[in-house]
Amino acid sequence: MITTVTLNAAIDKTYYLPSFPLGKVSRVQRFNAAPGGKGINVAKVVAQLGVPVTATGFVGGMNGEIIKQQLTRMGIAHDFVSVEGESRICLNILDEEHGTSTELLEPGPTVSEAALEEMKQRIRDLALRSQIVCLSGSLPAGAPKDYYVELVQIAKESGAYVILDASGDALRHGIEAKPHMIKPNEEEVAALLDIEVADEEALRNAVETLLHKYEMERISVSLGGAGSLTAVKDGCYRVTTPKVEVVNTVGCGDSFVAGMAVSLASKLSLEDGLAMASAAGTSNAMTEQAGQIDPAVFEQLRKQVQMVRL
Rank of each mutant, 00 (worst) to 15 (best):
E215G: 00
M216R: 06
M216H: 04
M216A: 10
M216G: 06
E217I: 02
E217V: 02
R218N: 01
I219Q: 01
I219D: 03
S220P: 00
S222M: 03
L223T: 02
L223R: 13
G224P: 03
G224Y: 04
G225H: 10
G225Q: 13
A226W: 01
G227H: 08
G227E: 03
S228A: 15
L229R: 09
L229Y: 10
L229A: 12
L229N: 08
T230A: 10
A231W: 04
A231M: 09
A231I: 01
A231K: 06
V232M: 12
V232R: 07
K233R: 15
K233D: 10
K233I: 04
D234W: 10
G235E: 10
G235L: 09
G235W: 06
G235Q: 08
C236G: 03
C236N: 09
C236S: 15
Y237Q: 06
Y237H: 14
Y237T: 07
R238S: 14
T240N: 12
T240P: 00
P242N: 10
V244P: 04
V244I: 14
V244A: 05
E245G: 13
E245D: 15
E245M: 09
E245Y: 04
E245S: 14
V246N: 05
V247M: 13
V247D: 11
V247L: 15
V247K: 15
N248H: 12
T249G: 00
V250H: 00
V250S: 05
V250W: 04
G251H: 09
G253N: 08
G253Q: 06
G253T: 06
D254N: 12
S255T: 11
S255A: 15
A258H: 08
A258R: 10
A258G: 10
A258D: 11
G259F: 04
M260A: 14
V262K: 03
V262P: 07
S263F: 04
L264Y: 13
A265E: 14
S266Q: 15
S266F: 07
S266Y: 09
K267F: 05
L268D: 14
S269I: 02
S269Y: 05
S269N: 09
S269M: 10
L270Y: 00
L270M: 12
L270P: 02
E271L: 09
E271C: 02
E271S: 12
D272G: 00
D272I: 02
D272Y: 00
G273E: 03
G273K: 01
L274W: 03
L274M: 11
A275D: 00
A275E: 03
A275P: 00
M276A: 11
M276Q: 13
A277I: 02
A277D: 08
S278P: 05
S278H: 06
A279F: 04
A279M: 06
A280N: 11
A280F: 10
G281W: 07
G281D: 06
G281P: 03
